[in-house]
Amino acid sequence: MDQNTLIQAIKRMLIEELDLRGKAPEDIDEESPLFGAGLGLDSLDALQLAMAVEERFGVPVPEGEAGRAAFASVRALGEFIARARAE
């Protein structure tokens, strides 16, 4: 999966798993933070996303600081998944 395909798949995952009704993939900024100010997600969303990343991409998301870094933005999540898959 190339980087662009991965980013699109992550955006679709966000919309489906977090029930972002009315949002399309192009509405989601790759750089802006997922939590707090950006998409306005909370820790319940983080748990849902961690489950979905493992289910859809086969990559478990660690708890704590490493997990928070992976969820910094769509781009950060893409890099985290690509790196984990390469290992």
Partner: peptide
């Protein structure tokens, strides 16, 4: 392992 957390409540 794959029970969806946000769905449960």
């Amino acid at each position: 392992r794959f029970s969806p957390p946000a769905e449960f409540p």
